[in-house]
Design a binder for these strands. Structure first.
Lengths: 340, 340
DNA sequence: TTGTACGCGTTATCAA
DNA sequence: TTGATAACGCGTACAA
């Protein structure tokens, strides 16, 4: 352990009490301007860096929030994190990043870690396999706040920041229908995750509204990742040719990428043979072999809003629990169709 | 503050001392198996979650490392972070993520924050404008370890994990030269940053080795981002048509993307009119209008190695300071040329 | 094997 | 305006 300056050392150096030093360091009101300056000067000279740990212990507050993301590399989450970071930076909060890798156990582990570090609050987008309501509740009972984003858990008293998934899914499905397609398949997320369920619902409702019968074979669970989209699409292409769908609604862009790969691999064309749409507007979407029609989720803004809401909860006990909706936007590119 | 169970409460509940509880919780040797189990059971029942803050204070060790990245959204850094996260997770370290936004002041701020939280070590890739050697040294004198990655600062006693930037830049430049190009420009990073300087050096050496005169107008600072690449390329295209370069070596992929945009915008073709190569193999590179020839930096592996090295430093005072080289790989795609 | 006393570095509280 | 003292929750060192 190298040389670490403490408040006591500064106090001794100046012949004042620790409290005087503490007050100067924290811009407390009850201190003479002169004294404060003197303290600050020597603190700087001695290379003092506050011990946030000790401070947190006595204040029972860490000025730190934790983030749990299911995946770091898809462009959506880094973009969210950037939004979060912007807000925490501006509000003098620190950010501990954890990663559940879509794994329920790791998610609980991550939450426990954050809890043990006594973060003031947690931002979380649930993992694919997660069913951690108990843990969420425990955390909230400990006095930590939770704000969900994108993948939410409702009715446990936590705020949520998201787009209108069901409506958005409805809308993009109807957009496909407007091209005249009737054989439409859905690559779905796990229905245990909010957006898996809601996007599936939107898809179904759009079919129903347009009097298209639901073919059970046309709903295949892909999960949220490229490889899942790939194998789900493979499964669909294993159907007799006659039964192939004419269009695909993927639960998100990565799944759509995987599906596109599977389609192109067997020599079919997008959208000429099979049209496809995604969800999120990944950074790669417009660059795909067939630029992807998708529902844009403003990730940066979602991160910002979620962080802002969390900090409000932390700073104001009476802050209302809210379901905050961010506008999504239909981005029409080539992958959805060639007529029209 | 909700109900937060402490060691004392568990001790009182069981009628034992706090130490007994502490020992059980920490798998200490000197405790009867029976006692331990009893303690663990009630701890669980009561919903105890360790207070890492208090523990860190007494142990003067946080089991936490900090990461400072200059940019979160370029695919390189999230990928590095994933590697880091994998290692910290496996070794039971926590990860505090900070973001300098390529800004020197914010970088220092981030480091101070990490220092105040008494992280055991810091992983950092320096910001574009950074000149924070003093701060790095101060941190190290406090007993925290630093490991640089990608953008390093040498000779201050910190390990570094990177690719051989100069050689790699040399190699990719020579690859361009092998197509017969002689009018080659370089979009450079700031030379105050290691990779800005070394990649420029490699570029220059390749020209020299091949007896190509260096045209000063052909070295334009773009920085590391897309917009910088765009405006740098604009500047080059402002030269009289006769003086236009035939090929571009960009300091990294985002800069290359910006340059490509500028080239395509004026109606020129890549690589037919102007060839271009990048550096890093961004996730978008193969999807570009002209798939980008680039030098792949294995980001995930860099993150892993850097985290491993940092943890070694933390756990072993005598761990050697090293310059760790990761292999880079020339990825040849279409953007570099059409002959050959 | 278990318990006691103390300290980690800071701030809250109350007294001067 | 300043200082003394206790407390935050836990682990270390030593004693029992």
């Amino acid at each position: 352990m190298g040389h670490r300056i403490t408040v006591k050392q500064i106090a001794d150096e100046l012949g004042v009490s620790m409290m005087t030093v503490s007050r100067a360091l924290n811009d407390s009101p009850n201190i003479e301007a002169k004294t404060r300056e003197k303290v600050l000067a020597t603190a700087k000279k001695m290379g003092y860096i506050q011990n946030h740990i000790a401070r947190s212990l006595v204040q029972r507050k860490t000025n730190t929030i934790g983030v749990v993301v299911p995946e770091i590399t898809h462009s959506f989450f880094p973009e969210v994190i950037r939004g979060v970071e912007e807000v925490t930076y501006a509000n003098n909060y620190q950010l501990i990043l954890t990663h559940s890798a879509e794994n329920a156990k790791r998610e609980i582990n991550a939450i426990d870690t954050l809890a043990s570090k006594r973060v003031d609050g947690i931002l979380i987008s649930t993992a694919e396999s997660a069913n951690s309501s108990k843990k969420y509740k425990q955390i909230m009972e400990m006095g930590m706040y939770i704000v969900f984003f994108d993948r939410c858990v409702h009715n446990i008293g936590a705020s949520c920041v998201r787009i209108e998934d069901e409506k958005s899914s409805y809308k993009i499905t109807e957009h496909l229908i407007s091209y005249g397609y009737t054989k439409i398949a859905h690559l779905s997320g796990p229905t245990s995750v909010s957006i898996g369920q809601t996007r599936l619902n939107g898809f179904k409702k759009a079919l129903k509204k347009n009097n298209i019968d639901l073919n059970k074979k046309y709903i295949v669970e892909s999960g949220f990742h490229e490889d899942g989209g790939y194998s789900a699409m493979k499964k669909i292409l294993d159907l007799p040719k006659k039964e192939w769908p004419r269009a695909i609604v993927a639960v998100n862009d990565p799944a759509a990428f995987g599906a596109m790969k599977a389609i192109l691999e067997v020599g079919l064309k997008v959208p000429e043979d099979i049209a496809i749409v995604g969800f999120s507007d990944d950074i790669r979407s417009e660059l795909m072999p067939a630029p992807l029609t998708t529902m844009r989720q403003p990730a940066y803004q979602i991160g910002k809003k979620a962080a802002e809401k969390l900090i409000k909860h932390i700073q104001n006990k009476d802050e209302l629990v809210e379901d905050i909706i961010i506008d999504s936007e239909l981005i029409i590119r080539k992958s959805c169709g060639i007529y029209k």
